[in-house]
Design a protein around this nucleic acid. Structure first.
Lengths: 282, 282
DNA sequence: CGATCGTTTGACGGTGCTCAATCACCGTGG
DNA sequence: CCACGGTGATTGAGCACCGTCAAACGATCG
């Protein structure tokens, strides 16, 4: 299997210059359908007729751009290992992070309806993806019902995750947003069989800030606050959840019920006491 | 065709009492596959073998709950006419709006991966939906490739829309968020062949506020501001876009590029002058 | 070891959230 | 017919939180 490598320093025809970034994506050994199904976490069994059938696998280095916003779409990817961020880059160069994606997640499917990718996808670490050519996809799905089921399952999860992201961004207090993000991340790790307690953040503070819709300094402050309140132990990108109940208490706190007249002033003070109360109760 | 009607005043087994709401959903005359395909906006042609094949149609009154968060999922819906809001209800009763959905959009597909619905879906006006039973869906998709294509197309668009929502919520200034929402809504109306200038908002200010992640008073103030700046004419729920260029100017404004050191102070003042500058230029 | 980037912490000012009052709109019932 | 709540929308006032700017520190990599 020849290893093809290419670098894209400029993407002619793209609307804005910020999209031009170095791209380091290489082909790797193809994988069996069985392995793809396993990655999705869907319990579908490989079809009998799938013997010998393989799907292409690509390797991406940390920081590499797997999909370019605005580029023509010919492939859908499914994460095999590693992690990615999905971003929209605006004219002034601001990177809005829409989601983080780990093993089993679909990348680039939005392009099916528009022909072009609506987001850029960037690897947060050295990663591998299954590549499904759009040209063949319909045929493959018809031939291998298990592949079809796995894809529908993954798409469904993608939609659910989009809702989760909105829920994180919608919180009032910055600490609440971060707490929700960490609980979400913890759950994601648990789903993949990793420790829900000890988290290693593959993304920068700035990326987290972008996802949550706050300034990156505020994320830093929120980490410190949650650590002060005894929820976390933070060392750079290593986060340990000390008191899950207290952290979960911090995830509560919305804009309040539509028709409730109760007093609801000083969100930050409320959060502090909530975390403390939970710490004492434990 | 008998018209079956039922009312659900309480949903036993649901985690929280706020989810219990009156539900007024009735069966209507089934529709052809051809009509379903047309609703999606996908250009797939109906299959030859689809003659006589029909899908169930439901009618929902304004305010009715089509899908209950936490309820077991057995159906996927596709909007035929009208509009809906998708909400997550938290323990304290706050309704977080995740999205608004119009004709051609998929409702309830997130449940495929989790078995239960993760959001409630509420009709904003009298509406109709195509109902696709999950039990039959895989079989139908296999028998009618055009149905399959339409569904994939709609799912893809759903994912793209989730990104749009994140983009709206991510903006710094409240006026920017509202401006993005209005531009988005205008584009949605145009896609469906309606006027992109004169908008009738089916949702309340509170719903908009929830989607954008701000207080509903702030939405009201932002409407007034955009009207003052000559972008809009606002009369209750009727909105006319007077100066699209000025409105579009208000959609710009992010947290600024990652590595740019230029001065960026007083977002509100910037917006005012941006809208004015555009108004003068025109 | 210097350069660059990411992270943390501080200070200050502005924006938006909370609370509150008012008005408009609407269906109901006196 | 108009009073009567009820809901939704608008506007104002005060203050808390977070964004902006700035500087220092730490990590990583050449």
């Amino acid at each position: 299997m020849p290893e093809t490598t290419w670098n894209v320093t400029s993407m002619p025809g793209l609307p804005n210059p910020w999209l031009a970034q170095r791209c380091a994506v290489t082909a790797s050994a193809p994988a069996s359908l069985q392995e793809l199904l396993h990655a999705t976490g869907c319990d579908a069994m490989a079809d009998a007729s799938a013997a010998g059938f393989t799907v292409a696998v690509w390797r991406t280095r940390a920081g590499a751009v797997l999909l370019h916003e605005g580029a023509e779409a010919d492939t859908v990817h499914l994460v095999r290992s590693g992690s990615f961020k999905c971003v929209k880059t605006s004219e002034d160069g601001y990177e809005q992070v829409l989601a983080f994606a780990g093993a089993g997640e679909v990348l680039g499917f939005e392009a099916v309806s528009r022909g072009r990718h609506t987001t850029s996808v960037i690897a947060l670490e050295d990663s591998t993806v299954f590549s499904l050519p759009l040209r063949e996809l319909d045929r493959w799905r018809q031939r291998f019902p298990s592949l079809d089921r796995a894809l529908q399952f993954a798409l469904s999860r993608q939609l659910a995750r989009a809702g989760d992201v909105a829920e994180m961004m919608a919180a009032v207090a910055a600490e609440t947003r971060l707490a929700r993000f960490l609980v979400w991340l913890s759950a994601s790790m648990a789903e993949r069989g990793q420790s829900p307690r000890r988290l290693y953040l593959r993304m920068s503070r700035r990326d987290i800030a972008s996802l949550l819709g706050v300034a990156h300094e505020t994320v830093s402050r929120s980490f410190s606050a949650l650590a002060d309140w005894g929820c976390l132990r933070v060392a750079n990108r290593e986060v340990e959840i000390i008191d899950e109940a207290a952290l979960r208490a911090c995830t509560r706190g919305t804009r309040g019920p539509a028709d409730d007249g109760s007093v609801r002033h000083g969100q930050a003070a409320r959060l502090r006491s909530a975390a403390r109360a939970n710490a004492i109760a434990a």
